[in-house]
Amino acid sequence: MSLFRKLFLVDLIEGMKVTFGYQNPKYIYTEQYPKERPPVSERYRGAPRLNINPENGETLCIACDLCALACPENLIVVGWQRGGPDGKTGKKTLTNFTYDISRCMFCGLCEDACPTDALELTQDFEMANYSREGAIWDRQALEEGPRPTQYKE
């Protein structure tokens, strides 16, 4: 039997059968990325966003600085000031928020640390940029979300 297999190249022919069978276009697994966008999962950890309270349009962030402390890469800088007249007392309010996506490893620790769900890693995954400075997002960019250049025909 094994002599028969050897003599008539059965092993080789069996392999060729497998590759031949896969030529049917229905087996094609890849997609044409910019034309067809794959759906990403709900929990996907992509581009960060600072959420805004939909009711009053104010930011959800309470400037507690927890996300900055949680981040292993120390890439979040929360800018804040006190609401009181002398600037030293009163409620903290957010002034600026910078987030350097070029150093981020999208581990999600900051998102987990945030007590108000203000900081969220969204399903956007297109964050390419032409410059390093462009990878540092400020509060405005974070609230608006990424706006990647769309692929056009």
Binding site: T19, Y22, Y27, I28, Y29, T30, Q32
Partner: peptide, 13 residues
């Protein structure tokens, strides 16, 4: 193209 077909890919498109 043949390679792509056998390898469940699209090939140059």
């Amino acid at each position: 193209k043949v390679m792509a077909d056998m390898q469940v890919r699209l090939g140059p498109m």
